[in-house]
Amino acid sequence: MRKALAALLLVSLFVFPFFSEMFVLLFATEILIFSIFALSFNLLFGCTGLLSFGHAAFFGIGGYTAVLLAYHTHMGFIPILLLSAVAAFFSACIIGFFCVRRDEIYFAMLTLGFGMMVFTVVHQWRSLTGGSDGLSGFSLPELSLLFAKVSISPPKTFYFLTLFFFLATLLFLKRLLDSPFGLIIRSIRENPERSAFIGVNVSFYRWVSFVIAGTLAGVAGVLFVFYDRMASPSMVHWTMSARPVLMSILGGARSFLGPVIGAVVFYILEYIVTQFTENWMIFLGCILVPIVIFFPDGILGSLEKWIAKRRGRK
């Protein structure tokens, strides 16, 4: 049943672009990009037990690096993506090194602080980043596959490119969480103090988790700037850091696909509500509050529990 459902979803992700309108295709692409972003965030939040309020820093660093490389060089898509991921990796190494010294609210404040610093640099360093205007008007890099160079400009191509990275992220994270490393970070989430007393270097493992999450967020940032055709400071603003938090809580931080469901629901709600009003955040709040109070496991988490309960009863 579960496998059949997953197969159906997967097939429809591959097939629907051939029948859908352009708008739906773009919409789906953006959701997939933000799913990667939210999944990367949730490696820290749901899996390691660390709430970051500065995750957009890495989304932005990945994105800006990609745009700068596209602007100033003639590199292809894959080298740009790799170098941008490396930039996100190193910044996550440095920022993470300081943030994992503390946990809980202090960790959240440290990430918020670093996030604001990155925002300020991006916003003020006009000569490099274009300041509040951001960077646009660059030509999209080409994607070199074995024999051919492919333009990533057609929305359908870009959708499949994004879908590839989305599925790769899912596989990678699944593998990671099923590994001994996955058990160790779950143990840290459950009980950081006890983890130290079984021999775990807690801050080191948190750091590793932070760096993996930051690097993945960088990849999502690269996809986003080529999708949006620009890099703007809103990418590194703290409201951007709040998005994966909301998505993970909405969908369910303890469920593997929770952040994805959260991203889907977030975008569909935003689309519906903004047709009626500019102040969609009020509606988001109205939905978020009851979810947190009555369904703290999120949409997917509550659904999973409900199904498990029904199965138990039979």
Binding site: S179, P180, F181, I184, I198
Partner: peptide, 21 residues
């Protein structure tokens, strides 16, 4: 899992990302 975590750490397998549990 409660008992497995200390064993894995002791044997230096904590960072074995690609090994399945």
């Amino acid at each position: 899992e409660n008992l497995l975590a200390p064993i894995l750490i002791r044997e230096g397998l904590g960072l074995a990302f690609l090994k399945k549990l």
